[in-house]
Design a protein around this nucleic acid. Sequence first.
RNA 1: UACCCCGUGGUGUAAUGGUAGCACAAGUGGUUUUGGUCCAUUUAGUCUAGGUUCGACUCCUGGCGGGGUAGCCA
Length: 560
Amino acid sequence: MPEERKESLDFVRSIVVDDLKNDKHGGAVVTRFPPEPNGYLHIGHAKAICIDFGIAAEFNGNCHLRMDDTNPTKEDLEYEDSIKQDVSWLGWKWSDNKVYYASDYYEQLYQYAVELIKRGKAYVCDLSQDDLKEHRGSLTEAGLESPYRSRSIEDNLDLFERMRRGEFPDGSKTLRAKIDMNSPNIHMRDPAIYRIRHTSHHRTGDTWCIYPMYDFAHCLSDSIEGITHSICTLEFEIHRPLYDWFLDALECKCHPQQIEFARLNLSYTVMSKRKLLELVKSGLVNGWDDPRMPTICGLRRRGYTPAAIRKFCDIIGVTKYNSLTDIALLEHCVREDLNKTAPRIMAVMNPLKVVIENFPEGQVEELEGVINPEDPEMGSRKLPFTRELYIDRNDFMEEPPKKFFRLAPGREVRLRWGYFILCKEVIKNADGEIIELRCTYDPETRGGSAPDGRKVKGTIHWVSASHSIKGEARIYDRLFSVEIPGVDKDVDWKDQLNPDSLAIKPVYLEPSIDGVKPGYTCQFERQGYYCLDPDSTPEKPVFNLTVSLKDTWAKIQQKE
RNA sequence: UACCCCGUGGUGUAAUGGUAGCACAAGUGGUUUUGGUCCAUUUAGUCUAGGUUCGACUCCUGGCGGGGUAGCCA
């Protein structure tokens, strides 16, 4: 599963190698991927997943998939299921085929909290949320000690137990760690470790009405599971002293090392759960799996492959530098993968009728097209050739400019896998619009080469008008029209959505695609990679644009 | 304003005191039955000022710039 590693190691892997060398954890490497089931996974999570699972795989270790479900008010089974699906779709297997849950440790965590109280390192605090905020101080000012800080161990034990029994209403009490209200690190100023929530949890039901906070639950969950390297993103850096404090205060045998890396930022999209949720809720996109979304399920529906995503995660690297990765890099990865694997088909998006005057009416000739020139093993498919064809309007110009190599009056081009055709006449309607081309074909050029050795500069795609299957193409572009949506605080990031992120067009497809299933990915020759959408019906296939082919002709046109 | 972290071509990354390299993007040329792919090639970089050293992207100090942190969220 893990791809081959480059010789130079990123800083996380260097730490792991050093630890292995120094026998720090007895040769073990155990990592974990700990999502909170309160949203769908996105490409940024894919980076974390590839680091967590990738490192475990490379060093013969294990990676636990652990639901960090300590806040019943936000979490849901729907999210949990999608997380499992996405992780395994990406190609990773969690160790022991078992999903871990922070909620499975609630009793142990409670006992740890009791122990903390017994050691005089935690106390029950009656301060309200507002009072707590007052006491916390600010970034520049020290905090104030709570008046409840000096309660006796006996009182604390009693009160904490009654918190658990449900004697107190939400928000009336918290259990706090007794650390240092003067610490320059606000997270060390007697942080709350348990709060009262009379809310049922999607896994533990109504068993609990007090729930542990992240800082307390996370380090201990890691310790309980024997995690060696607890890899997370940069915003937790400032929490690390707390992470270590709990494990030291409780003298835990297993003390994992927290290592932080920079999360992924991608241009022309957003990555925060809040913004993604807002897009879905406001109907600005069509659900979590809208192919424009950077979610794993969105990318999957768009036609991205696990291999492409893993390659991307591999080449972006792992550092502590807050960077912005160009989405073109992601697009490059999927092109590279699909170029090698995707079958080619011909599909005409803006049909222009071509009548081959010297080809008999009613006759059907079967031609053969290579399925993938990059992989001859894939064989070939049949292409019906008839008197009436469709070509793309963009492949014809009545008055072609210098560098235009395609069809024009009096010009000859090659029909891909077919014949050379020569344009004899342009037919227009009363409004002067071109509605048809009259051409002749050279029967000697079957398959696309001329026995007399004459060359043509252009090759264009086509379909038989009578055999083509009419479908729908959903042509996607970047979700936002600015590199970093919301970076300018004066404008609403939702106003920066790209109005052209989706265009729907009819498309005439070569008949060989008949019967393919949703998820089927192919290349529309000379255009881009497309993936069959689940919205398809037997009558009307719907194809999503994954990514277009590079288009140097478009570049030439742009220059002029 | 306090504390913590981070600054290498346009972008993302390597070089772990010893030739600043790779990929993407951009440009040029070649091959081509996809204006795709492929091949060749060009442009372009160590934030800054000192210090240590035979030698600094790397170590030290100051400055500048960017990010994070004041949920009973994770």
